[in-house]
């Protein structure tokens, strides 16, 4: 099964509403189970320039996974971005997450010059945690009961990857 990666577009609104409210995605993110295409369209039309958002699409150009970097708004944290990644249930384990991670890290290291990429993953999301580890993300700690998951407050792991641009030393 082939897929390709491109920037997200406002025309992806309906597909994004479907992707982000899929049961497996909702469980392991902070998304809500019911979402509307209209809300997504509005969101995608107003996307901030500090958000770098990619999607992976199937042969019919339908979104099957989404990933991005959101640079922190504080002036003293502009070298830091939050990373997010989610893959539709039936496309898991097929290399889509890996390809999106590779694309985001290349974007960050070679074109954005970010130093710290950080993320939080719910502690039972072992598949995602293993993927992040493979890409050099290190565990920084555990945040207790920060998110409501199917009626329970659950813990999240904090992970981050530091990358210093080469040739920058005086």
């Amino acid at each position: 099964m082939s897929f390709h990666i491109r920037r997200i577009e406002p025309e992806d609104a309906a597909a994004m509403a479907r992707l982000q409210s899929a049961p497996g995605v909702v469980r392991h993110t902070s998304q809500q189970p019911y979402q509307s295409a209209a809300d997504w369209q509005q969101k995608l039309l107003q996307l901030s320039p500090s958000c770098h958002w990619l999607v992976a699409c199937d042969a019919a150009d339908e979104v099957i996974a989404s990933a991005g970097l959101t640079i922190l708004p504080q002036a003293r944290c502009r070298h830091v971005a939050d990373l997010f990644l989610l893959v539709r249930d039936e496309w898991q384990g097929k290399g889509v997450g890996r390809a999106l991670m590779q694309a985001l890290l290349e974007l960050s290291d070679n074109w954005l010059g970010l130093i710290r990429l950080q993320l939080m993953a719910q502690q039972d999301n072992q598949r995602a945690i293993a993927l992040y580890e493979r890409f050099g993300f290190q565990h920084e700690g555990v945040v207790r009961q920060d998110i409501l998951q199917d009626g329970r407050y659950v813990d999240s792991v904090v992970m981050a990857r530091l990358h210093w641009p080469a040739g920058g030393q005086a």
Binding site: R76, C77, I115, R116, G141, V142, V143, D146, V158, L162
Partner: peptide, 21 residues
């Protein structure tokens, strides 16, 4: 709960912060 490495610039250096709750 966590030590966030190089989280913020302070007077010319990227410094670590602790996340507490």
């Amino acid at each position: 709960e966590a030590c966030l490495r190089a989280y913020a610039l302070r007077n010319g250096r990227y410094e670590d912060v602790l996340k507490m709750a």
